[in-house]
Design a protein around this nucleic acid. Structure first.
Lengths: 198, 198
DNA sequence: CCCTGTACATACCAAACAGTCGGTTTGCGA
DNA sequence: TCGCAAACCGACTGTTTGGTATGTACAGGG
């Protein structure tokens, strides 16, 4: 443990423990122990446990958003959509989501706090996560014209349902200790999308 | 507060607090306070906080399962399937799921406990909840024959995806404080099912 | 009317909790 | 080489935690 990396260690330890037990069950002492750092270091870098939680949310979201991002140099919207869904399946099968989704944990645990800044931050991240897909979906829907609904609303709706399937899959994967459920859920979304776009 | 109803009061208080803050943040003292009862009553009826959690799970699941159940005297499998999905939309819009899903809270919070009896109980309830739908789906798939996959596996897959959409919808509803997301998710599932059955 | 078990209440405990504070180490510019 | 701020340490505090020990009110059978 060299000087200067305590903050990073704390973020990683906190992420792991929050995913394993939830936010309120992940104690400051335990986070410090896992990070190999003392309480002094903790409260030097974060003014409270809530501040740490917000930082962990950023840290986690950054990696998830990066994992879902694809190179944007593909010609047609349909190709981009296809690439995004393929990537999504890979992410679902990969190690990043195997322990669950930190945003989901926060969402369920912080739903009715008096101060809901953390909850609002989570909601914002969810929106951001769906925005890339929504954009591509809008282009695809516009391209094929003949929309029963306006493309804008329909794209927004379908993008939200991707997050629904992803988070639902993660929840059931955790309940059953079966990470394959996430992949299954993403594949279901892909099929549904194909059917509803055709 | 008359004698004999402390247990029921404790179950209801615990359900409310767990849905609001999660299991570990819902303290025994607070549960007792909300139930209008003392610690003595708590530990008279439940030998530990975990025992209460299991009882709350039963209490909650019973009501959810009842809400999703339909009269089974409808003639054709397709009619039954349709009735189930209509009912599902009603439940999604109703008060029962407005505060979230207790099973999802448990699943995320108890995922990596050394003793995973509670987690296993949650997984079992999820399976039970999907079983009714799975049965009807199998009949519908058999009826229309010409399956690309065996009807058994396909019905099981599609029934799981209902729970995926339901729980995913609930998670995002909590994150955004927008109960309508649950209804949206169930409607998405219904459309997807219609597309993939046709 | 008394006796007994169930249904609670009250006071308490050790451990764990988030957060604090005075002190020590260390990198680094002057 | 010195000075100083940032990084980090670890003992401490007041409160809260799940759980217990002991007592009491009361319904119902004899």
């Amino acid at each position: 443990m060299t000087r200067g990396e305590a903050r990073q260690q704390l973020l990683e330890a906190a992420e792991e423990l929050v995913l394993a037990r939830g936010l309120s069950a992940a104690t400051v002492d335990e986070i410090c122990r896992l990070a190999g750092v003392t309480k002094g270091a903790f409260y030097h870098h974060f003014k409270s446990k809530d501040a740490l939680a917000l930082a962990v949310l950023d840290h986690y979201y950054g990696r998830v958003a990066a994992a879902f991002t694809i190179a944007s140099d593909l010609a047609s919207p349909r190709e981009r959509l296809d690439a995004m869904l393929t990537r999504a399946e890979e992410v679902a099968a990969g190690p990043l989501l195997r322990r669950g989704c930190l945003m989901a944990v926060f969402a369920l645990e912080l739903a009715e706090r008096p101060d809901d800044r953390l909850r609002a931050a989570v909601a914002e991240r969810f929106d951001q996560l769906g925005f890339g897909l929504e954009t591509v979906l809008r282009q695809v829907l516009r391209e094929q014209g003949c929309a029963p609904k306006p493309a804008r609303a329909q794209a927004s709706f379908l993008a939200r349902q991707f997050l629904v399937c992803l988070e639902g899959g993660i929840t059931l994967a955790k309940a059953h200790k079966d990470p394959e459920r996430v992949v299954e859920a993403v594949r279901f979304y892909r099929k549904s999308l194909a059917a509803q776009l055709a």
